Simulated assay, not measured.
Amino acid sequence: MQRWQGGQGVPQPWQGQGAPSMLASHADRERAVDVLRAGFSEGRLDERELDQRVARAYQTRTVGELALLVADLPQGPVPLTSAAVAVPATFLPKTPPPTNGKAVGSLVCGVLTLMTAGLTGLPAVVLGHAARREMSHTGESGDGLALTGLVLGWLSVAGWAVLLTLLVVAGFAGV
């Protein structure tokens, strides 16, 4: 586990605070040892040299002595020398097409037919057909929404047609 200056888990440069003759704190020694361990993990130091420098780091008294132990090592993340290559569009995830607004409206009107006694059935049918026509030209998504709105709308229209037919038949039968 590496403890780096800053505490965010991102390696930061070790910078001894103050003058070289200032006494080193435990935190200063730990940051210097972290830089040494990072140098070892990158292959910049061999194990024997790491052990010697770590032992020396824990024996130091001043910040200047610690600075000498890590002077020949990068003291933080080494920047990339070349710019990162962009990922070709072939390998990027494809963004889904937007959902057609009329398809959503058709579904909402179709569902509302249950609560409005079928009064929103006709708008559901009109919006559903308009949405499907638009989606075939624009490539938008939402065909399932439009189809559901159409089915619920047509069921509502059929229900009203049956109810009106029964009322007309009952009216003629009662005359």
Rank of each mutant, 00 (worst) to 15 (best):
G9T: 03
A84P: 13
A130F: 12
A19N: 15
E65T: 08
H137M: 13
E140P: 00
L155R: 09
Q17C: 09
A55P: 01
M22N: 00
V157H: 03
L150K: 08
T90E: 06
D46A: 07
A67F: 14
L122M: 15
G6E: 01
R29K: 10
V111Q: 06
P123V: 05
L167S: 01
L80M: 10
P93T: 05
Q2N: 10
R53K: 06
A84T: 14
G159L: 09
L167V: 00
V151W: 05
R3L: 11
G39Y: 01
E65H: 11
V63Q: 12
Q52W: 07
P77G: 14
S156G: 14
G159K: 02
L127N: 03
L45P: 02
E30N: 08
G18N: 05
V70H: 04
V63W: 03
W14K: 09
L92S: 01
V151R: 11
Q5N: 07
G18A: 02
A83S: 05
S106R: 01
G142P: 08
G174K: 00
V126A: 13
T113K: 10
A55Q: 08
F172K: 03
W4I: 02
D143S: 14
T116K: 02
A86P: 05
P13L: 02
L114F: 12
G105R: 14
P97E: 12
G121N: 03
A24N: 02
L152E: 12
L92T: 11
Q52K: 01
V175S: 00
E140C: 09
P20Y: 12
V162I: 06
L112G: 02
L166Y: 01
L166G: 06
P79W: 05
C109S: 13
N100R: 03
V175N: 00
V157W: 03
E134S: 12
S41H: 11
G6M: 04
Q75A: 13
S141E: 12
V85G: 08
L147A: 15
V108H: 07
H137Y: 12
G101P: 14
L80Q: 10
A27Q: 08
Q5E: 07
K102I: 12
W154T: 11
A146L: 09
T99I: 13
Q12A: 07
R56K: 03
V70E: 11
G43L: 11
A84K: 06
E42R: 05
G144C: 05
A38V: 06
G110T: 01
Q59R: 14
T60M: 13
G110R: 02
G39L: 05
G39D: 04
G121I: 03
A83V: 10
H137Q: 14
G128K: 04
S41L: 14
P96G: 08
A24F: 05
P79F: 01
A130N: 12
T120P: 12
A57D: 07
G149C: 04
Q75W: 04
R132H: 02
G149M: 07
H137G: 07
S25H: 01
R133Y: 04
E134A: 10
L50G: 08
V108Y: 06
V162P: 00
V87F: 10
S25R: 01
G153L: 09
A117T: 07
G149R: 15
K102Y: 13
A38D: 13
L122D: 13
V85R: 09
G18Y: 11
A86E: 10
A27W: 01
P97T: 05
L36E: 04
G149W: 11
